[in-house]
Design a protein around this nucleic acid. Structure first.
Lengths: 212, 212
DNA sequence: TGGAGTTTGTGAAACTAAGAATAAGGCTTC
DNA sequence: GAAGCCTTATTCTTAGTTTCACAAACTCCA
């Protein structure tokens, strides 16, 4: 597939939004075709931005017509890598861990949490959704046999770095980190921080400055 | 407090990171002073960026010395508006809602979830943490009497817009949205989307392109 | 006291992303 | 099949953000 040499990070963040919007369109709308204008309007993104973003990866639309919903959806799935299923192991069977396992949206995006790990002996053996919580001792075996590349960290801050080290030792390549701390990882390991506190603070920031 | 006319959005997103780092420093380190270099190293941000970000709000450091940890922490708290406590009402007593109520980091950032609302009759009256789940009918009363400005949406996608309308009708000014959809709101209402699917997709994206 | 070594604050430069303008292709209608 | 109206793709311009470079301020030590 064509791909420009440099693609803005911001573009990559918008692609999933386009994808999800197309999913909705293909499920509920009868139109086979959507214009960049309509796609943009639904997402609050200018149409020129939509076209620009897509153009990094090729020509998907037809001038004077628009984009074919199904085709573009398939193309985006391929671009995003969600045309296959990615197994993931989640560490931390607390509230957040349970919420993530039960989160509806992941399956559609290609993520499947196949295993849940916890170090708390009381939690091992419990069910989270339809997954049995297993011990950290099993981690390496799980990662190796299922070829898992993604690890999700949903443990308290003070355990996050230890869990990271365990995951990397077991062979994990990408980490999705929900603990509000910066993880130290070797070259080649990708970390995405999903930092909830940052989100709320920027909301509060705007609230507190808004009358000045 | 001094504040430049225009402050980059990216800067505002970094301020909470600085704040949290300072908290850690003030709790575990004996040094009273921290340099922009050290602060940056801990967060993976270049020191010039740290200084520039802070400089939008005034001069907090001493040349040749660095920043006084406690002072800067206090200044940042004031800038971010987290020197006071902001009450918030959470809608949706599912897994995600429970995870949010029990999330440790919020209190420190000035957010206090004071009430939980759900439309599901089976859930009303249940406890989430130490909060009793209440009906949507009580929403307006809660918002008015407690002067709540922040609403948190942790309901399924198809209910999110209805909940948004309810929150706004009740007088909410800022919405933190965990449902993976774009909310339609009137002018003057702030929305922050915390879209978990986007996070995982950008991780998958990098994984799937990495060997090309 | 003065010089060497730090570290901040900031204006300018470089870089990155977004937006506007334009060119080119495609549909519709007569 | 030609004119007029759409819509995409691309180039060019503008805006936004980061990085650089350096003066100013401070510490430490001789």
């Amino acid at each position: 597939m064509k791909r420009s040499d440099y693609i803005p990070k911001a573009t990559i963040e918008r692609l999933p939004l386009y994808y999800r919007c197309l999913e909705k369109l293909s499920a509920y709308e009868q139109d086979e075709v959507v214009s960049s204008r309509e796609l943009g309007e639904r997402l609050g993104i200018p149409p020129t931005q939509v076209r620009k973003d897509l153009s990094y990866y090729g020509e998907f639309g037809r001038r004077g017509v628009g984009y074919h919903v199904e085709d573009l959806k398939k193309s985006l799935a391929k671009i995003l890598g969600i045309n296959k299923t990615w197994p993931a192991v989640l560490v931390g069977a607390g509230n957040l861990g349970r919420a993530l396992v039960n989160y509806e949206g992941f399956q559609k995006m290609g993520l499947q949490i196949t295993d849940v790990i916890d170090s708390d002996l009381d939690k091992i053996g419990n069910m989270v959704g339809d997954i049995t919580v297993r011990s950290t001792k099993d981690l390496e075996d799980i990662v190796k046999t299922k070829q898992v590349k993604i690890g999700i960290i949903a443990v308290p801050v003070n355990a996050a770095q230890d869990v990271t080290d365990l995951l990397i030792a077991a062979g994990i390549k990408s980490i999705w980190n929900f603990a509000p701390t910066r993880l130290v990882v070797p070259e080649g390991i990708m970390v995405r921080n999903e930092d909830l506190s940052v989100g709320i603070v920027s909301l509060i920031y705007h609230l507190s400055w808004e009358n000045e």
